[in-house]
Design a protein around this nucleic acid. Structure first.
Lengths: 271, 271
DNA sequence: ATGTCTTTGTGAACGCGTGCACAAAGATGG
DNA sequence: CCATCTTTGTGCACGCGTTCACAAAGACAT
């Protein structure tokens, strides 16, 4: 899972809770898999297991969409696939632009899940003139100068930012100005956008750090109870590494070339 | 932001709420930037703005860590950087393995933010024998056969899965068996793991679908009030595309090669 | 030393999300 | 047509997270 939830104050979109919206894609994926196996119906219990959620939660989620189930039987797979697709707006094709065709941008461009899921890569955009015209994933990379024209000509409303952090806000501003109202941001920066524009963030660094926190806690639990027998042999090595670091002078204020920076590389991309 | 939050039932880790833990990396990044500019102190207001959150929320978050601020002045940047780093477990180096060196895996391997942030890529692992030995980001790709040995030898407790969905669960099982207790999953699958193992998911598809939902809602608002003047000219094109799709027979159950699949490609990776 | 001004730390209220548990709905068999 | 059994849909309670608003703490000037 990625991080960041730069949403508007949660304007309960049309009665469907944000938390539910975030799970609909999960249900849709599970349902699509069932559909491929020609399974006609599923119970909330089965589908919930496949999606990795609680069955009560799933039923409540579906109740926001309407009563699409049949008591005693379950849900019609095909029908539900359609209903959720419609609710998510996947019955139409969303043109998407990807800005920043580095390692990550290229990986995104090559992602096969776009077309089959209601999305279409309208253009790949990069600031490097040397990249211009070079084909990536079958599309010629366009130069940043053309950004506004591309957005406008294709009616693009969703943009993906895979640039270094330093360029992200500027790219974001241009996208928004050109008419983009939804942005998926892979750059490790907080984007400032006007009211009405949605931003979602995907950040490898943050995810890893959250994992590290829990990892440390696990190791600490094994070590804290005064030399309790190391539970799992596998964790012992990590646990041993938990040493008390040198305390920093509380009052030491002045200058400070702190830790190595990283704020300028995209969340997932070589420098 | 990515999606998925496959956490244990929220065992309020050592008194620090999950929501707070998820924001600490954000604060840390903002603080690191300030540190580089040799800013000695920040107020909760300034830091909150830089991190894109509410100042009250930030103060409450910090209160869980202890009282590290000075009333009337603010927070000592260097000290706070150290405290948060320590809390997140970044004062030690976490060896990480990346499994699945496709387009995305390579992008992750090249990510420069690892070393400077408390993480170190211990090894790149791929199932393709042809990849074995090939250098990616300065490291030779190792074959899957060596997975267990690599984990064990390096004391790896964090694994990144960037394989196709079909292989993800199997890889996951092997990682867990070898001693990995934290997993960052880029494959579009629900991973099943034993108690005590943390999984975080990053899924491009889900993020885009959530954006599409809100995008559709925006378009609908402009269109619903009976031909209200199209607010932004930019959205008019998209709004026009919102047509009522053909209803699916409610009872049509039988077989059904539904929509194009995609469940077998990693969240971000070419087929 | 005293007063003023800034900023933290937190008590309390509120709202969202989750999960339990059950009644209602419908299918199925006799 | 009736009884039974399965599964949905939801009322309700609980807990987490967010936000407001303010008292306490300290810096700073006089």
């Amino acid at each position: 899972m990625a991080t960041g939830r730069t949403h508007r104050p949660a304007t309960r979109s049309r009665g469907i809770p944000e938390a539910t919206v975030a799970r609909l894609p999960l249900y849709l994926r599970a349902l699509t898999a069932l559909s491929e196996r020609s399974v006609p119906t599923v119970s909330s219990e089965e589908l919930a297991a496949a999606a990795g959620v609680n069955s009560a939660k799933l039923r409540k989620d579906f109740s926001y969409l309407g009563s699409y189930g049949t008591r005693g039987v379950g849900y019609d797979v095909e029908y539900l696939v359609y209903q959720i697709s419609r609710e998510l707006g996947l019955t139409q094709d969303w043109p998407v632009v990807i800005v920043g065709i580095g390692n990550l941008g290229a990986a995104l461009a090559n992602y096969g899940g776009f077309a089959s899921r209601g999305f279409r890569v309208a253009a790949l955009i990069d600031a490097d003139p040397a990249m211009a015209g070079k084909p990536v994933a079958g599309l010629p990379v366009r130069h940043t100068d053309e950004l506004e024209a591309i957005i406008s000509d294709n009616g693009v409303s969703i943009g993906v930012i895979a640039t270094p952090a330093g360029a992200a806000q500027q790219v974001c501003d241009r996208l928004v100005n050109a008419g983009v109202t939804s942005i998926l941001n892979f750059a490790p920066t907080v984007l400032t956008v006007p009211e009405g524009v949605d931003v979602r963030k995907v950040d490898l660094s943050i995810e890893l750090q959250i994992l590290a926190f829990h990892e440390q806690r696990k190791a600490g639990e094994d070590a804290d109870p005064a030399a309790s027998a190391a539970a799992a042999a596998a964790t012992s090595a990590a646990a041993a590494a938990v040493a008390t670091p040198p305390p920093v002078a509380r009052t030491a204020t002045g200058a400070g070339g702190g830790k190595g920076p990283d704020g300028d590389v995209p969340a997932v991309m070589p420098a």
